[in-house]
Design a protein around this nucleic acid. Structure first.
Lengths: 191, 191
DNA sequence: CGGATCGTTGATCAACTTCAACGGTCGTGG
DNA sequence: CCACGACCGTTGAAGTTGATCAACGATCCG
């Protein structure tokens, strides 16, 4: 049942009729990824907006030295894409890679727009999703620019305790804009 | 004509009938602020989403040492608020202050929601606004976490050359998460 | 067993901050 | 109308945080 999580998510925000659900349904296609496979590579155009039905992915940029810099983790119930690239259909700067075997529901740019035309409730759904997303990103930006390494660590474990179980420490470090070494040192200082 | 800029902005994204425009119109109220006056103070609830019709504002957090950390500048044609506080009606962490005399169009949370119920096209309008905003914030976050001070400076002047004319250098520094001293040194190195 | 991956720890280093002083400009009040 | 203070940008010297480089141990898996 790949669509179960999606409709659960949608139902939390808007009400769709059975017919609308079927229309919405018809715009998606299922894609499975195995660990380490890519949903998107840098320089490609991000044609799909992905709803994570099962699994876990990361989006990141590589700097000139080859360091991964994680921008976002996406797990069950999250949307993931290179938004810039998806919206404007320009080459992506982010790569998106599966960290666990994944089941994704893909929505192409075309279908995204058609769906929004045909099902106005989805317009609201995405407005609501984006609102929350903006609030979170605002916060992350403030944290990134004002917090010390230690404060970032503390706020991470307060905000996403689940992540600690599921994601290698070095990637959490990267998500916070820290090196793995710094992350490790702080962790031990805190005990 | 305080509403001219707003409708120009809306017209770029969606089409409203004359009646719809009047409904939309009716939800806003005009507010003028003089330089240094506050639209929002920390700990207050952000009740209004503000469209900047004229002027320039900054939103920022104060750290424990009293340093301003600028999160956003808002000028003609931009929306500004403490989004977290506005959405969830929780105490604000951001302050919003006029840097020039301003004319604002305020939309209360209640009216925001009513407007979205009554004028579906506005649902689309905000969805489109948020899409672009998300793409930009994503980028800023990546820059904040991966760029050196010099790279941040370069990307700022490439992205917002107008800002250099209008905004004191020390605030641009803060916007980038740098000290004014560092900003100044880089500026001279680059010439 | 052998290799890859991940976290830890130590030593050194560099980028940026902090602290301090100074000079220029602008606006305001005496 | 001038003088003073506020504000802003610049410059230098010293300090700190976190990055870098390097080595090592543990675990997992084929």
């Amino acid at each position: 049942m790949p669509y179960k999580n999606l409709f659960k998510h949608i139902d939390q925000k808007v009400t769709l009729t059975t017919e609308e659900k079927e229309v919405v349904f018809s715009f998606f296609r299922v894609k499975k990824l195995r660990r380490r496979q890519f949903l998107l590579q840098e320089e490609d155009i991000c044609v799909d907006f992905a709803f994570v039905s099962e699994g876990l992915l990361k989006s990141y940029v590589l700097d000139e030295k080859g360091n991964e810099n994680v921008n976002l983790f996406g797990w069950e119930g999250w949307w993931i894409a290179d938004f810039q690239s998806f919206l404007f259909q320009t080459p992506a700067t982010l790569a998106i890679e599966a960290m666990e075997d994944c089941e994704l529901l893909l929505l192409s740019k075309e279908n995204y727009e058609r769906m929004l035309d045909e099902v106005p409730a989805m317009e609201r759904y995405f407005r609501l999703v984006y609102e929350r997303s903006l609030a979170t990103k605002d916060q992350r930006l403030v944290h990134a620019q004002t917090y010390s390494a230690e404060e970032k660590y503390i706020s991470l474990i307060a905000m996403y305790p689940e992540l600690l179980q599921r994601i290698p420490q070095s990637l959490l470090a990267s998500f916070l804009g820290l090196t793995p070494e710094t992350f490790s040192r702080i962790k031990y200082k805190k005990k």
